[in-house]
Design a protein around this nucleic acid. Sequence first.
DNA 1: AAAACATACAACCGCGGATAT
DNA 2: CATATCCGCGGTTGTATGTTT
Length: 285
Amino acid sequence: MGRQPCCDKLGVKKGPWTAEEDKKLINFILTNGHCCWRAVPKLAGLRRCGKSCRLRWTNYLRPDLKRGLLTDAEEQLVIDLHARLGNRWSKIAARLPGRTDNEIKNHWNTHIKKKLIKMGIDPVTHEQISKPHEEDQSSSSLTDQKNNSLADNQSCDKSQTSGLVNTESDHNSSRSPTENCSSTDESTHVLLDSSVCGGDEFLLDSLWLEDTNPTVDISWNSQVPGDLMNDFLSNDIAFPSSWEENGSWLLDCEDFGVHDFGLDCFGDMEVKTVEPSTLEMGSKQ
DNA sequence: AAAACATACAACCGCGGATAT
DNA sequence: CATATCCGCGGTTGTATGTTT
């Protein structure tokens, strides 16, 4: 009956990944894809749970990841999406190319949440929890954006809105945010003012597409590096701008030998030299 | 200079839906 | 149909790093 256990807890390593483990995982997935995560650790020679491998890959090793802080535009997008979707981080992440749910979740908890509270906005309901005290708060761009977004949203004035917020969701604030994510919501969407998103058209364009947005949900399953590169080159799938900047993992590849990963296709790319200490950091944390 | 505190983020845990047996 | 497991998700924790006292 049923299936075999995902991993036999015994002998499974936990805690931070080492560079060596990263190397094995990257090497394996780029070569073979991941048919099923359960099999990955064994096949890749890792003493890890498949779950752990999946997490490491999706949150850290995946080559299409952007790294570094979220931009103001991305942050605003997260706020707006959170207003509509609630804590559905994976859905939110799907709208932000190169960002992971974990990253967004962390950023929300450490940055955005505090900002909103500071602004007198309940980060859960996105409603004012107190008088907009200290309007002076010398408005960061975010503050302005958020005020526009929420104020417009709450005043029901849909004609002049600048935030990308589902007005319906606020009118129905008693509803769970998760109930507001049906595709029919689209009728009430308003376009983001370009000032809000800093003209990040890419983000906007991808915003209300279906979850299967190909610019985001690039399937790495069964991708061989050559196909991968072809996808990037032919399907308007851009390498994240930070690909090179943050490509410590790529440097890893360089150290290990790019050929080991079947990454010859990346040979034309400029790979910046990064201090080994930086690398350590990257793989350590 | 060092201790205490705050922050950021990678990784783990546990749950629920989907699916194989 | 029942059960066991996989997979993905969201919440939480642990720890490294940065800042303040």
